[in-house]
């Protein structure tokens, strides 16, 4: 890559920049803190790129506008924060059922209910276990820096198109609001050809995009096909990052902002001579369970740190070997675990 200038941007703006870089010219969204900089950015930039920005009447409408845009073959996206993402679950289920690519950004805030606008990772389950009705999965990326807010948005479009599946960038309020220097990379994978779009049955038979299957066995077969796709995703798209795990006796597992905080705690633990490492899932669906499983052959103790009361920890427990100890430290309701708190937990469980 050629020498490039770094620019200081907010996480939410990096999402918008990444989206436009990925060729997304159609944005549909509804205001909600702490992600308002995304629709604001898109409303400012898309008209300059001959794109369309629509402020929808609700998140129900925005996800369905994305569904319509996706069906005619363009790259489009929406963004929201937790309460709005709850409203989008219906649409996500339809997108998954109709095998439509879409990119959804969730700048997670704390709940339940109206909760608050402070940061949280309380939407992990909703994101990685399907979220809406039916048996489906949403590809879910968990950025941990402003650079990754940009990179993951581009990656999300690529994955969504390649697998014809909704893809979520599961960020949080800290990532959305903080500023860091980023590089605007030039490389965007080419958009795959879409042979299924609804662009008019001019010289071909009519196409239908649907998720209703009434004939006996049809829906089961459709579900099995979807599950096969999810297995392919699990096989090929797992991404994770590790720091200092090689000789670690205790490995901290955390995603997103928690991983950033844990990284500082792990460095301080190392300075104190403790053999501690950090495991950071970059994709949370597909979850890097196989890697955790092999790590657990050697590492006998994991400490999972989250900004919730324990969600990803369940996936860690599911994947590590039976005799592995898995401890948990979490702060819910908008509280942020500090590096000192995490270090204290490391020392306690080491």
């Amino acid at each position: 890559m050629t020498e490039q200038k770094r620019i200081l941007v907010k996480g939410n703006e990096a999402v918008g920049m990444g989206a436009i870089r990925a060729g997304c010219l159609y944005y549909f969204g509804y205001p909600i803190t702490p992600q308002n900089e995304i629709p604001e950015f898109m409303s400012r930039e898309l008209p300059r790129h001959d794109g369309e920005f629509v402020q929808a009447e609700s998140e129900l409408a925005s996800i369905n506008m994305v569904l319509g845009a996706s069906a005619v073959g363009v790259r489009s996206m929406t963004s929201s924060s937790s309460p709005g993402i709850s409203l989008m679950q219906e649409g996500l289920s339809y997108l998954a059922g109709q095998e439509l690519p879409a990119v959804v950004i969730n700048v997670v805030r704390c709940g339940p209910g109206l909760g608050g606008i402070a940061t949280s990772q309380g939407d992990y389950f909703q994101a990685v276990k399907g979220g809406g009705h039916g048996d489906y999965r949403v590809i879910t990326l968990a950025p941990a820096s402003v650079q990754e807010m940009y990179d993951h948005t581009i990656l999300a479009f690529d994955l969504a198109d390649r697998y014809r599946n909704p893809t979520m960038v599961l960020a949080d309020a800290v990532l959305g609001q903080m500023q860091e220097p980023i590089f605007e990379h030039g490389d965007v994978p080419p958009e795959p050809r879409k042979h299924w779009t609804l662009t008019g049955a001019a010289n071909r038979p009519a196409r239908h995009l649907k998720s209703l299957y009434l004939k006996e066995g049809e829906l089961e077969a459709h579900n099995r096909m979807l599950q096969e796709k999810y297995r392919e995703i699990q096989k090929h798209e797992v991404r994770f990052e590790e720091y200092d795990v090689d000789d670690a006796q205790l490995v901290v597992a955390a995603f997103g902002t928690s991983a950033r905080i844990a990284r500082t705690a792990v460095s301080r633990a190392r300075e104190k001579g403790l053999k501690v490492g950090l495991f950071r899932p970059v994709t949370v669906f597909p979850f890097p369970g196989m890697r955790l499983c092999s790590l657990s052959e050697r590492v006998k103790k994991f400490l999972v740190v989250e900004m919730n009361t324990g969600q990803m920890v369940e996936d860690v427990r599911l994947n590590v070997k039976g005799d592995t100890e898995v401890e948990f430290y979490g702060r819910p309701g908008g509280a942020i675990p500090t590096p000192v708190e995490v270090l204290t937990q490391i020392e306690r469980h080491y």
Binding site: E180, R260, R263, T338, P339, V340
Partner: peptide, 9 residues
């Protein structure tokens, strides 16, 4: 590389 953007002290 910066770990935590959140600082205790």
């Amino acid at each position: 590389e910066i770990g935590s953007p959140i600082v205790d002290n």
